[in-house]
Amino acid sequence: KPITTGLITLLCVPWLWADIRVIDDAGELLVLDRPAQRIVSLVPHATELLFEIGAGDLILATVTFADYPEAAQALPRVGDYNALNTEAILALEPDLLIAFTSGANLAQINRLQALGYPVFTSDPQTFADIDRTLRQFGELTGRQHSANRVADAFTADIARLVERFGGKRPLQVFYQVWHDPLITLNGETFISKVIEVCGGVNVFADLLAPSPQVSLEAVIGKNPEVIVTGPSDAGEASRWHQWPQLQAVVNDALIATDPDTLHRPVPGLIKGATALCEAMDQVRERLN
């Protein structure tokens, strides 16, 4: 009877006999012999995703700007995009590091990996990537059921936005990430995909760099119908009023977005996407 009970236990706890194998966003295979229990999350979106799937209790520390949900604000900080406190990370004895695919701290991450610490790099750029990342985090933490539920809900929410807005009159959109210098996004980024969901066309979708710098002359040449900016450069206070010949100015289509709800590849971007889609729809109504 004890032997039988032991066999049943082994069968009910798959990680006791099967490795966890996932491919990260750098194309590298990560193999764990059991779900991670001591995670250091070195990117804000990964911290939020882990909390989303019910694995926030496994995070030992995170980085600057990992401020959502509220529980994440109580976590110790071990650096940021530019530099890490490797001594603090080593003292935590993590069994998984989640890192970004680039950044000034990449050399430090590589050294930690060389010391034997498992590293999963995460940089989701599409809705499908966000769905996949949620499910992978579920595998890595043993929280597959909740991760699959969150991923299913996110993908369903995107589908509802597509059904509601995707077939409407296309609007030519310039998305301003930063004003000085002017930074935008190309068509491969998830924010550009949000613009498409809203029935928009990213006027700089064909640029090669994900976050390219563009000139004022290039924007004026594209003459977008809508300009999307941060809160400080929209509405009556926007500097774009200096160029009244722009369609976006004529259309009163200088739309402000909340970076906290749109600039992270997490399920919470549905809120920001819905707000953007509705604002663009108001522009359509004025143009009809």
Score class of each variant (00 low, 15 high):
residue 1 K to E: 09
residue 6 G to L: 12
residue 9 T to A: 12
residue 11 L to G: 10
residue 15 W to H: 13
residue 17 W to R: 13
residue 20 I to V: 14
residue 20 I to A: 08
residue 23 I to G: 02
residue 24 D to M: 08
residue 26 A to G: 03
residue 36 A to G: 11
residue 38 R to V: 04
residue 38 R to K: 14
residue 38 R to H: 12
residue 39 I to R: 06
residue 42 L to F: 07
residue 46 A to N: 07
residue 84 L to M: 11
residue 85 N to P: 05
residue 88 A to G: 15
residue 89 I to C: 02
residue 94 P to N: 10
residue 98 I to H: 01
residue 100 F to N: 05
residue 104 A to R: 15
residue 106 L to W: 05
residue 107 A to G: 05
residue 110 N to W: 01
residue 112 L to E: 06
residue 113 Q to N: 14
residue 130 I to Q: 01
residue 132 R to K: 09
residue 133 T to K: 13
residue 135 R to F: 03
residue 136 Q to C: 00
residue 142 G to R: 05
residue 147 A to I: 06
residue 147 A to H: 08
residue 152 D to H: 12
residue 154 F to P: 00
residue 157 D to T: 04
residue 157 D to S: 14
residue 161 L to W: 00
residue 165 F to I: 06
residue 166 G to E: 03
residue 166 G to V: 07
residue 169 R to S: 00
residue 169 R to N: 00
residue 170 P to K: 02
residue 185 L to F: 03
residue 187 G to L: 05
residue 192 S to D: 13
residue 196 E to T: 15
residue 197 V to Q: 03
residue 201 V to H: 01
residue 211 S to H: 04
residue 212 P to S: 03
residue 216 L to N: 10
residue 223 N to C: 02
residue 228 V to N: 04
residue 230 G to Q: 10
residue 235 G to S: 09
residue 239 R to K: 12
residue 244 P to L: 07
residue 245 Q to E: 12
residue 252 D to S: 10
residue 266 V to I: 12
residue 271 K to D: 14
residue 278 E to F: 09
